[in-house]
Amino acid sequence: MTSYAFFGSLEQGFAFGLMVLGVYLTFRVLDFPDLTVDGSLPLGAAVSAVAIDAGVHPALSLVWACGAGFLAGAVTGFLNTRLRILHLLASILTMIALYSVNLRIMGRPNLTLLGKPTLVDLFTTASGLPQYLATPLLFALVTVFAAGVLIWFLRTELGLALLATGDNPRMIRALGVNTGNTVILGLGLSNALTAMSGALVAQNQGGADVNMGVGTIVAGLASVILGETVFGRRSVARAVLAAILGSLLYRLAIGLALGLKLGSFSITPSDLNLITALLVVLALTAPRMKAKVFS
């Protein structure tokens, strides 16, 4: 792996790290398998790209992206908790609907940011570093900051109620928490993070594409599971950091796989979803197989 590819993987790992934090929040904290992220990642990208195209400051466009992502997550939460639609199905419905919404937002399948100022450009100029270093550094700062906020939040009164909603909803209702509201809040936060992730990715690759969200949930799950397998999840802080490290490991593994050549066969980016899906299957079943082998 060249150092250029290495820094590229880090950059991706941190940019998608925000999304992985979001997936951690739904999948692990709330125990809610949320496929909305496949739609909210391109949603964030689309909102950010359209905003920048309209002359909004790229940093401010992230706020817009977050807001849109929060709404998308809240819709899934509403479908599940108020209209009593099964969680998985509720999130698929939102995801599918977002495909149309994203096309409406951009007015076309993709929107390029060529010639427009992005956060990456601004930070590279301001830091004086070469771009291949400046970009991962910028994304690292954003993602580590978001992780800090998330850890802080999960230790507040409301954050504890959110943890308890996933852990033991019956008990926390008996302690006076409206679990419908905490689920909606958690999904909103998760998809806000995911949309912000999409916005960063769009600004990095120079545009938004309506199809860029395909496989987001699988990549997110792979990262979360990879991270906790390697770093553990004994405490909330540790699990959050493990999610980011998992994202880095996952992107590095992908980077390595893409460089792989077996005779005339080589792995292309289009193979990634298959590989990732297999990885998740393996990670989800490995603990049980291990238990079987050693029992």
Binding site: E157, L175, V177
Partner: peptide, 18 residues
Amino acid sequence: QNLALALKRGQPRGLGPG
């Protein structure tokens, strides 16, 4: 944390330390 959750029974939960 369990006790803190119980200590807030019937009260609104905000962004104060859990």
